[in-house]
Computed example of a mutant assay.
Amino acid sequence: MPKKAPPANASAEPSFEQALSELESLVETLEQGDLSLEESLKSFERGVALTRTCQQALKEAEQKIQILTDQRLDAEPEPFDRDN
């Protein structure tokens, strides 16, 4: 039986909302304490990655807001490095 192809955006990072929702679900699951040690570690590792995704999205939003609310008359939008 042929394997299903992964969704087109499977390698892309989840949106902020998707990452936050998955993170909340992981926390609830971990708090229940029903997972094995190995499953708990995998969930924790995924949670760390999702936290970093959320933090990066919030940082980018903050940078955009700072650029848009700059009160200098000569202010121009500046590109920011997405990888920092």
Rank of each mutant, 00 (worst) to 15 (best):
M1C: 08
M1G: 13
P2D: 12
P2Y: 11
K3F: 04
K4G: 00
P6A: 05
P6K: 12
P7I: 01
P7F: 01
A8S: 13
A8G: 04
A8P: 09
N9I: 07
N9H: 09
A10V: 14
S11N: 14
S11E: 15
S11P: 02
A12F: 06
A12I: 03
P14W: 00
S15G: 03
F16M: 10
E17D: 14
E17P: 01
A19N: 01
A19Y: 00
L20S: 12
L20W: 03
S21C: 14
S21R: 12
L23Y: 03
E24H: 11
E24C: 07
S25Q: 13
S25N: 11
L26E: 06
L26G: 00
V27I: 13
E28F: 09
T29D: 10
T29G: 04
L30W: 02
L30S: 01
E31K: 14
E31L: 15
Q32N: 14
G33N: 10
D34S: 15
L35R: 05
L35I: 08
L35Q: 12
L35M: 15
S36C: 12
L37Y: 15
L37V: 15
L37W: 13
E39G: 04
E39H: 06
E39T: 10
S40P: 02
L41G: 12
K42M: 05
K42W: 11
K42G: 05
K42A: 08
S43A: 14
F44C: 08
F44K: 12
F44N: 14
F44W: 11
E45Y: 13
R46D: 02
R46M: 05
G47Q: 01
V48F: 02
V48T: 07
V48A: 02
A49G: 04
A49E: 02
L50T: 00
T51M: 00
R52F: 01
R52C: 01
T53S: 09
C54V: 08
C54Q: 02
Q55Y: 03
A57C: 08
A57R: 02
L58P: 00
K59F: 12
E60Y: 08
A61N: 13
A61Q: 14
A61D: 08
E62C: 06
E62G: 02
E62L: 05
Q63P: 00
Q63F: 01
K64T: 05
I65K: 02
Q66N: 11
Q66A: 08
I67V: 06
L68E: 10
T69S: 11
T69E: 12
D70W: 04
D70I: 01
D70V: 06
R72N: 15
L73K: 13
L73F: 13
D74N: 13
A75G: 10
A75M: 09
E76F: 09
E76M: 11
E76W: 04
E76V: 10
P77Y: 04
P77W: 03
P77N: 07
P77M: 05
P77A: 07
E78S: 12
E78D: 10
F80E: 11
F80C: 09
D81K: 10
D81V: 07
R82Q: 15
R82W: 15
D83Q: 14
N84Q: 12
